[in-house]
């Protein structure tokens, strides 16, 4: 209990004094997670929507695989990305290992199935509502996807925020591919792991509280900007 209290006090002082290290790793956390979120959303939202409206031979298997990939163990993803990006790996020549880019790649792989799967579920329900109307209006496939994304945008926002939540709280994969290098690839979660290992629970907790506050702040900000939960809106 004392550790938690001390953690809260430390977190408060770290924030009010604009601790340089805290600001740096917080900004890096945001940079990595938001970049991964944008990239993953750009892949997952059209993919999930496409899966909702297209009928093809291996559709069921594809959806089952996508749902299964939601539970991808981050450590395994980290390991695979590590092998691919290491010097002896196929992409070693790019020199991306132990950089924020490698961390973004790992996070994109982890959160894309999650966003795509939630998108698919939401779009499938919306498509059931809209199917007859859009066919009747002769909407092209592109127009149908655009209409679903447009009208389901608030659900898609939720899907993206779920992805963001997973990305910003992720530690296993980015620890492996980023290496937790000070001033280079250290982010809030890897810093928490490091401080816990060193036995500095107060600082680890302080960083934890900052991480939670950051995640809440981003969620609130996105909700405010997208004007969700307002009267007369969907």
């Amino acid at each position: 209990m004392n550790d938690i209290l001390q953690g809260l006090v430390s977190a408060f002082w770290l924030v009010v004094t604009f601790d340089a290290d805290l600001v740096e790793i917080s900004l890096r956390s945001l940079q990595v997670s938001l970049s991964a979120l944008v990239l993953a959303s750009a892949i997952a939202i059209p993919l999930g929507t496409w899966l909702a409206i297209r009928r093809f031979r291996y559709r069921r298997a594809t959806i089952a695989l996508l749902n299964a990939l939601m539970g991808l163990p981050p450590v395994v993803v980290g390991l695979i990305v590590y092998i691919l990006l290491s010097r002896s790996g196929p992409f070693g020549v790019l020199g991306l290992l132990f950089t924020p880019t490698a961390m973004i790649i790992a996070q994109v792989i982890i959160i894309t199935p999650l966003i795509a799967s939630i998108t698919h579920q939401a779009m499938r329900d919306l498509w059931a509502d809209y199917h007859d109307l859009l066919i009747s209006l002769n909407a092209s496939k592109r127009d149908r996807i655009a209409a679903l994304i447009m009208d389901g945008r608030r659900t898609l926002l939720t899907a993206s925020l779920a992805g963001f939540g997973r990305a910003i709280g992720e530690v296993g994969a980015i620890m492996i591919v980023g290496g937790n290098i000070d001033n280079a690839t250290r982010v809030l979660t890897t810093a928490i792991a490091l401080e816990t290992g060193k036995g500095d629970f107060a600082l680890a907790l302080a960083l934890g509280f900052v991480l939670i506050a950051l995640a809440i702040a981003v969620n609130v900000l996105i909700h405010v900007l997208s004007r969700t939960e307002r009267a007369g809106r969907w």
Binding site: D129, Y130, D132, L133, A147, M150, D151, G152, W234
Partner: peptide, 9 residues
């Protein structure tokens, strides 16, 4: 349609 389909707009 009998049950009118409204776009969420």
């Amino acid at each position: 349609f009998q049950s009118p389909i409204m776009l969420r707009r």
